[in-house]
Design a protein around this nucleic acid. Structure first.
Lengths: 407, 407
DNA sequence: GCCCACTTTGTGAAAAAACACAAAGTAGGC
DNA sequence: GCCTACTTTGTGTTTTTTCACAAAGTGGGC
């Protein structure tokens, strides 16, 4: 004796019907926790549900919490309604959830808030029934989505393969992206090629990012290329981006330990003509971060890598014979004969902007040792007294040398 | 009744003859105070003469002193023997000197040290006679020299006009330059085109430089191009060069106030194949010093201009769109609305490596004002906390912008 | 193995830089 | 014209950094 009809014309009417049957607010989400439908219910609702409906996706913090506490995993594994106690820290009242699955693949979820009384067996059965019905509707949507996604990915890769945009490409891109919004191209680079399984998991994390809006994305070898923009105002774009990048990379490293994902973010651009250049910038960032992991540990954007931007060019073009600097040559000679570390010390002394304490901390030595070495360097070269332009050149010379060495 | 013969086969025999006639040590110099001949005389001699004979040129300090005291000018103007009191500060005992002139042009000088007794009229007449005889010999030498010089200059300009050396050029250059010596190409750039008169005066100063050995030189428009090397050891080459460049530029500025001469020195090179590249380096230095007189006030070598090396490329190639840095844009916007100087302050804060005192001194403001502005900048951008590579990039961005503006 | 030159570390004193706070100056906006 | 928000300068205090010097450690050459 089913409580619901065999089928509904839309997810909205299904949500409404379940809501009526168990007399509680219902939300239906896709596999990326984006809102698909919700019941209009006059009764009390909790902050998490409001945020979900307003933002048309479940807040990032809630998803994080549900994963960390293992609840989401349980919902997926059980394949039948699970009652979840309230998690007030993230604004979540008590609720029940059921996964919508098709041959092991998650298609989405149905959530129901608890009223004042606990859920009855019957109400949970209704949820289970609802999940079965939603499956058919979601399969249609999912299939359509996947077709669209695959087509868009192919298109995106095509665009990124050609330095100069064709007029037809430009027209289509302009339809996809909002006008006059500062967007960026981000590369997520992995240690191994991105398999479809890994891609799916990466997309999941990407789709749940609240701060950004993804325009297009594509897989290319070991990289996931993402064209996106920040939801914040242009004035706060940079701050918001840096914060997001920091959080996002930490999240990725936690979730994909074996893949060692690394971000590279282009500068902002407003015209789709810049996509190719932006991709090169983003890739330059990941490539340099591969070479200089410590130095660029917290540099994710093209702006942040600073003059490292120039290192590959400098290492390549011998025209500017930058890396044979007499100062470095002399220090290197001294290092060899005296088993010292003057070049390295100088390098980090410059990097840390003359801050002896930080240099000492980084090299795990006594600050006075740094002072001693700096005085030695001064005796040999008096390079520490020069101004930024020359210091930077020496630093670049050291780095260009290392870059070539590794290559 | 002449005391000397009508002519002598060489300057050496002439010097010997004069020395015999007046029984005092004699030296004959060309117009650049390079030693041409000297008498062998057993009697006491002074430090200046010893140094002159050993170095085959009059020491720089002596020439400087003789110019500053007006003695040399007097010798040239008088056109007859002048008795010069001892100048012990530069190791010069009492002596007599006579200029060797030909139609107003100085060809050289004859010097005679005083014995214990003062010079007699007769002895001075002998000197005058000697100068007349030397004139003929010097004219031959001078004519020959000038022909050689002109030919060498033509050759040098030809070499510098072609980026890739022809085998015949290389062979001839290798004959001219010592092997395995670190040489440099220096450009002396003037505010006006170098006239033959100016060139002659410049060559005079150049020829009297003790620290360097000139291989070749040539005039090209407003520039005097000099290929030279330091007489010091390779290990001290750089230190010696920097010291010399400092002294030499001061000297030039004092002597040629209207020409506003400016030095540009290439990096050192060992192969004549590098001449063209070296010239480009040297010219890049003078060109940048023209654009950034204050910033590069004491930067004379290509090494010293540091990352300014890259500014023209950066300003030219929009490929690396470096000069639109969000940080600078934001600060510029603030500067406009608040009538402040944050960008300039940041620029010098970076240049002076975070030294508030020096920034304040350069901008003629209170150190606390600098601190206040830095805090403002931090509130707006937190750029001051980043490490060298990003700081340098911001600095470059500011500079590339200014470079383009001026152009 | 021992000496010698050089490097590293530790300690307290001295110098320098940063800071907090107040007062005075400045320039738009209403 | 006055108010307000912001900037600049001055003063004394606090914190940080540097310096001087001593002791201990290190490693290669004879």
């Amino acid at each position: 004796m089913p409580f619901l009809q065999k089928s509904y014309e839309s997810l909205d009417t299904l949500a409404e019907a379940i809501g009526q049957a168990i007399r509680a607010p219902i939300t239906i989400e896709n596999r990326h926790h984006q809102l698909l439908a919700y019941s209009t219910h006059p009764d009390s609702t909790d902050p998490a549900r409001i945020a979900t409906i307003i933002g048309r996706r479940v807040p990032e913090a809630v998803i994080e919490d549900l994963w960390e506490s293992g609840i989401l995993q349980e919902v997926i594994d059980r394949d039948e309604p699970v009652v979840i106690p309230a998690r007030m820290a993230v604004g979540l009242g008590e609720r029940a959830a059921v996964v919508i699955k098709q041959q092991g693949d998650v298609l989405g979820y149905i959530w129901s808030l608890a009223r004042t009384t606990p859920f009855s067996e019957q109400e949970l059965t209704v949820l289970q029934e609802g999940a079965n019905i939603a499956k058919k509707l979601l399969m249609t949507i999912a299939m359509h989505e996947r077709r669209i996604d695959a087509e868009l990915e192919r298109f995106f890769l095509e665009v990124l393969a050609t330095p100069v945009l064709s007029p037809s490409h430009r027209d289509r891109l302009n339809e996809l992206a909002p006008i006059a919004v500062a967007s960026r191209l981000t590369v997520i680079e992995c240690a191994q090629p991105v398999t479809p399984q890994l891609a799916e998991r990466l997309f999941y994390v990407l789709a749940t990012q609240q701060a950004i809006e993804v325009v297009l994305h594509a897989i290319d070898g070991q990289q996931l290329l993402v064209w996106h923009y920040m939801k914040s105002d242009l004035a706060e774009e940079e701050t918001a981006l840096l914060q997001w990048a920091d959080r996002f990379e930490t999240q990725l490293r936690d979730k994909f330990i074996e893949a060692e994902p690394r971000l590279g973010i282009s500068r902002r651009f407003f015209e789709s003509d810049m996509l190719y250049a932006a991709m090169e910038e983003a890739r330059r960032v990941t490539s340099l971060r591969r070479k200089f992991p410590y130095e660029l540990a917290t540099s994710r954007t093209f702006e942040q890598i600073g003059i490292y931007q120039l290192v590959p060019d400098l290492a390549r073009r011998i025209g500017l014979r930058l890396e044979t600097h007499p100062t470095i040559e002399r220090l290197q000679a001294y290092d060899v004969t005296h088993h010292t570390e003057l070049v390295t010390t100088l390098e980090w002394y410059f990097y840390f902007d003359g801050n002896v304490k930080r240099v000492a901390a980084h090299l795990h030595i006594h600050p006075n040792t740094v002072l001693y070495r700096i005085r030695r360097i001064e005796e040999l070269t008096n390079i520490t007294q020069v101004s930024l332009p020359e210091r930077a050149a020496v630093y670049l010379a050291i780095k260009a040398g290392q870059y070539r060495q590794d290559d």
